[in-house]
Structure formats: structure tokens, C-alpha cells
């Protein structure tokens, strides 16, 4: 085993460290599959949504999430910064920690994030001590503003939420990875383990996925597949990918000693 493979490699978010680089969403599952999906994904962070509890006595998702997993409530449903702040504060009041993933959408067709409102909400919540993980459209200037506003990570979208289309914004995510000194976590649109692996090879700190797994034929096996792909991509990134030649070829076999 090489020294690199023996080295400890932690993901650090807002002073908390994690061994896993796979953030799992919990939407669109039946509750009895959540636990197995989390375990097979090896996920240590799972996202949740906050909604009205109209009836008591029903099964609650919190009963199905393994102990020790960090809960990352999102602010889905928020259309502006004020609504996101309200949801974040309520989420913290449930009593599951200080993490929050800001999601602010004005558009219900494409579910694209409102970057300007996201910066506003990040600033307010970071000052209140939240570990703020904003979902955003990949834009370098916005990422810098989010960093200055106190974001703990930046979560650029790969493609529209739930689309499984993969790394449509690849070039712009690469700019964030190269320029922003925060963990860049690729969020939304990742549809296959190969895409998650590619994001990790690019230098993403982690990948978030939900729909790709929830809509797979075998949810638990797909969660495991993502785990392996993310691990492979991370190790490949740390190993330093081989160079790409613009033109021509380079023989890998000796060019001497041919049979006559």
C-alpha cells in the first residue's frame, strides 16, 4: 500500500470532521429503506426537509436514521432569504444541531437557486452560529461572496435537481474548486456513480446525491455503488491523474526488440 493510501483523509466542515465524502439526501425513499441506504452509502451526513407536522403519532424519519449521522436540514420551500432563515431557525429548534443547507428557489420549473438571496441568508445564519452550506448556481463571484458571508462549504449544482443529468456545469465547478478555499461539494443532478467519481477526480471535496439512488432499481446497491465511486474518485484525485496529450500518441510498450 502506498503512503498516500495509508494517509488519513478527512472532510472538515465548520470544524467537524468526517471520513465519508458522500452526502446522502433522504427524499423519495420509503422510510424502511433509509437506514440501509445510509449504511451502505457509508454516509455520515444526511439531508432532511422541514415541513408542517399535521398529524402526530406517525412514523418519523428521525427514527430511521442511524445514530451518529449528522443531520443537514435544508431550507427547501424557501423563496427568499427571510423564509430560509425562518426554516433554518426552526430546524435548529427541533434539536438536531447547527448544520443547515440553504436552498432558495423562486422557480419551480427548473428549481434553480437564487444566488443573491442565498448570500443574504448565509450572512445572517453564519452570524447566528450555523454551519452554513449554501446550494448555488456555480459562479465564482457568488462563491467568493458566500465565503465572505461565512459559508462553511459551497454546494454548486451539477444539473437541475432530480434530473440525473450529470456534470452539466463541469467547467464552472472546476473554477470554484481551483479558486475557492472551502470544500466544494457537488450537489444536485448527479445521476450515476461515474459522474460522482468524475466530480471527485476534479477535486470536489464531496458529492451529494439523492434522486440517483432513490430512483435506482436497487436503492441499497446503488448507494453502495456511489460510495465506491466517490472513494475511487477521491483517491484518483489525490494520486494525481496522468497527463492528457493534446495530439498524437505515446507508446506504452517498448519500441525495441520487435520480432523480425
Amino acid at each position: 500500500m502506498s503512503d498516500l493510501m495509508k494517509k488519513e483523509d478527512k472532510l472538515v466542515i465548520g470544524g467537524h470532521s468526517f471520513d465519508s465524502r458522500f452526502i446522502l439526501g433522504s427524499g423519495k425513499y420509503s422510510l424502511d429503506l433509509i437506514q440501509a441506504a445510509v449504511e451502505h452509502a457509508g454516509a455520515q451526513i444526511i439531508t432532511l426537509a422541514l415541513r408542517r407536522a399535521n398529524q402526530g403519532g406517525m412514523a418519523n424519519i428521525l427514527d430511521y436514521i442511524p445514530e451518529g449521522v449528522t443531520l443537514l436540514p435544508n431550507t427547501s420551500g424557501a423563496r427568499n432569504a427571510d423564509e430560509a432563515v425562518r426554516i433554518a431557525r426552526l430546524s435548529r429548534e427541533v434539536g438536531c444541531g447547527d448544520f443547515v443547507k440553504i436552498e432558495i428557489m423562486r422557480d419551480s420549473k427548473y428549481l434553480l437557486p437564487d444566488n443573491a438571496e442565498t448570500i443574504k441568508a448565509t450572512e445572517i445564519l453564519a452570524k447566528e452560529g450555523f454551519v452554513v452550506m449554501p446550494y448555488m448556481y456555480p459562479d465564482l463571484n457568488v462563491a467568493r461572496d458566500l465565503q465572505n458571508a461565512g459559508a462553511a462549504t459551497i454546494m454548486p449544482l451539477a444539473a437541475p435537481i432530480g434530473s440525473n443529468k450529470g456534470l452539466c456545469t463541469r467547467e464552472f465547478i472546476q473554477i470554484l474548486i481551483d479558486e475557492i478555499d472551502l470544500p466544494i461539494i457537488v450537489d444536485a443532478g448527479i445521476g450515476a456513480p461515474s459522474q460522482a467519481c468524475e466530480a471527485m477526480e476534479m477535486g470536489a471535496a464531496a458529492v451529494m446525491a439523492n434522486t440517483a439512488i432513490a430512483t435506482a432499481g436497487d436503492i441499497v446497491a446503488m448507494a453502495d455503488s456511489f460510495k465506491l465511486a466517490i472513494k475511487a474518485g477521491r483517491q484518483a484525485y489525490l494520486s494525481g491523474l496522468g497527463r492528457v496529450m493534446e495530439k498524437g500518441a505515446s507508446a506504452s510498450s517498448p519500441l525495441t526488440g520487435f520480432l523480425q
Binding site: 446522502l24 439526501g25 433522504s26 427524499g27 423519495k28 425513499y29 422510510l31 433509509i34 439531508t47 432532511l48 426537509a49 422541514l50 415541513r51 408542517r52 407536522a53 418519523n60 424519519i61 428521525l62 443531520l71 436540514p73 435544508n74 427547501s76 426552526l90 430546524s91 429548534e93 427541533v94 434539536g95 438536531c96 446550494y135 435537481i161 432530480g162 450537489d187 444536485a188 443532478g189 451529494m208 446525491a209 439523492n210 434522486t211 432513490a214
Partner: peptide
């Protein structure tokens, strides 16, 4: 706060929101 549920008495016309976590992601 949860600590204040016991001492908060509801009165006519109050507006209450009760929320919890559900599955959600991307």
C-alpha cells in the same frame, strides 16, 4: 423553545405552526 412549551398557554385566535423533519434532498 421546548423548555417553554409547558408555560406557554394558548388563547383564542393564536396562530401555531408545528414542524418536523421529512425526507428531502436533491
Amino acid at each position: 423553545s421546548k423548555e417553554s412549551y409547558r408555560n406557554t398557554v394558548l388563547k383564542e385566535g393564536d396562530v401555531v405552526e408545528i414542524v418536523t423533519f421529512m425526507g428531502g434532498g436533491c
